[in-house]
Nucleic acid binder design. Structure first.
Length: 424
DNA sequence: TCTGGGGTCCTGAGCCGG
DNA sequence: TCTGCCGGCTCAGGACCC
């Protein structure tokens, strides 16, 4: 987490746990656990000979970016989200590995199981981090929140062979900040009574939701630290940056964050996108890619028992301008051919010609398959759904390449141009 | 340096119906 | 019948997070 790099050193030293000793953790029921350089750490666990070399995990193609870098690689300035080509110039001797998401998912499941063994109130944010509310577990375990943090750190290392950092605080936001500040392999406790003392010296970029653009806007208003945001009258802040953002940032800056840990969260959209190695202007190739992405997206819907109503496509041109176009269907669907039909229509009718760098498909307005409005019985899509469900089953038994749309079997763009799906 | 891929949330414009 | 207002919905774009 790059945000911690700019934070005042004194704070880190004051609140960091050291030699089994940490500040007063009374009332600190929120834990944020963040795995250290997760993908890189998993790769090193699999190949211990990489332990003492810089390791970078990310897209290894010409347009890839860094997903994760171990701390040895970071010493050379390598950061996540940096183009891999740039990383190679900074650390030419590092080991560069393509990501293995299945492996990281498996380790993540093991880590989350450890968390759930401690408390049922676990809210995963991604593969490598989660919030835990340990308020109900204190008595059962006979530990304070800091003790639970240390228990988690030792169990994750012993069971999964990777290290993590833990933030302990009275709110989610403070716990998350704390875990970022004690990385790697550390723990930090922010006493409830010291929340503002901890928070106010931080730069505005430490606030959740403040990226480069918003930080620049705030700085233009003379707001450089979290204390500056908390000191500005809320009505003025609302006028300057909009109601929702102002209220969100003002609350965080004032130490107010009453969000609870929510163990179950439903997805709101599912999609897939792809950046081409070389820009593509050929419409037939673009449609073919849309079919592939429609298959991936709708396949995820079916696997999760979901339907979606709005199909949107995203097109990024060579100059990096990006447009999205969407259409809402009268009834929700999980049928690849239906998603593809809308996506291709949007491409044909609403996207101007040009060199395309990235194309994507996303399905929004999700609903459970059983509660979603069903397609009418005689609709032509019904035949497609049955065919696709059979194909899904074949893929789960024989692998992802076992069954694919005919137009994806060959590299011939001419075929794609002629592709007009018809149910058997 | 030259910018991935998976998402979420917010804002504002336009349209429509009450 | 016309007009204004308001709320809900859809769509597009932008910012942000990991």
């Amino acid at each position: 987490m790059g945000r911690s790099a700019n934070l005042p050193r004194g704070l880190v030293d004051r609140f960091r746990a050291r030699d089994g000793v940490w500040p007063d953790d009374t009332g600190c029921r929120m834990l944020h656990v963040d795995m250290d350089a997760f993908y890189a750490s998993v790769e090193i666990r699999e190949r211990p000979e990489l332990e003492s070399v810089p390791v970078v995990v990310g897209g290894v193609g010409g347009r890839g970016v860094v997903s994760s870098a171990n701390y040895l690689a970071r010493e050379y300035g390598v950061r996540s989200a940096m183009p891999t080509a740039h990383a190679r110039r900074l650390a030419p001797h590092a080991v560069y590995l393509p990501p293995q998401f299945d492996l990281y998912q498996e380790v993540s499941r093991g880590v989350m199981a450890i968390f759930r063994d401690i408390t049922p109130l676990v809210e995963p944010l991604s593969l490598d981090e989660a919030f835990l509310d340990v308020g109900g577990a204190l008595r059962r375990l006979g530990l304070t929140p800091g003790g639970i943090g240390e228990l988690i750190r030792s169990r994750v290392l012993a069971d999964q062979g990777v290290s993590c950092s833990v933030g302990v605080a009275s709110t989610k936001f403070l716990a998350k900040l704390a875990s970022g500040m004690c990385k790697p392999d550390g723990m930090m406790v922010v006493p409830a009574a010291a929340s503002l003392e901890f928070l106010h010296p931080l730069p505005v970029s430490a606030l959740w939701g403040v990226g480069a653009k918003t930080a620049a806007r705030l700085e233009a208003l003379g707001l450089e630290t979290v204390a500056d945001v908390a000191a500005m009258p809320l009505p003025r802040l609302r006028r300057k940056i909009g109601v929702a953002l102002a209220e969100h940032l003002y609350a965080l800056a004032s130490g107010v964050d009453d969000r609870a840990v929510v163990p179950e969260s439903r997805e709101k959209s599912i999609g897939a996108e792809e950046t081409f190695e070389v820009d593509v202007a050929d419409r037939a190739l673009l449609r073919r890619e849309l079919l592939r992405l429609s298959e991936r997206s709708a396949g995820s819907l079916r696997a999760k028992g979901l339907h979606g109503r709005t199909v949107s496509i995203k097109v990024r041109f060579s100059d990096f301008t990006t447009i999205t176009r969407s259409r809402t269907l009268p009834v929700s669907t999980d049928v690849t051919q239906e998603v593809y039909r809308v996506a291709a229509e949007l491409l044909d009718t609403q996207v101007p010609p040009g060199d395309v760098r990235l194309i994507g498909v996303r399905i929004e307005g999700l609903d459970n398959a059983d509660s979603a409005q069903q397609l009418i019985f005689d609709a032509p899509e019904r035949g497609w759904r049955e065919a696709e469900q059979a194909a899904d089953q074949a893929r789960s038994r024989f692998g992802s390449l076992a069954v694919r749309p005919a137009s994806l079997l060959r590299d011939s763009p001419e075929r794609t141009a002629d592709f007009e799906p018809k149910p058997e």
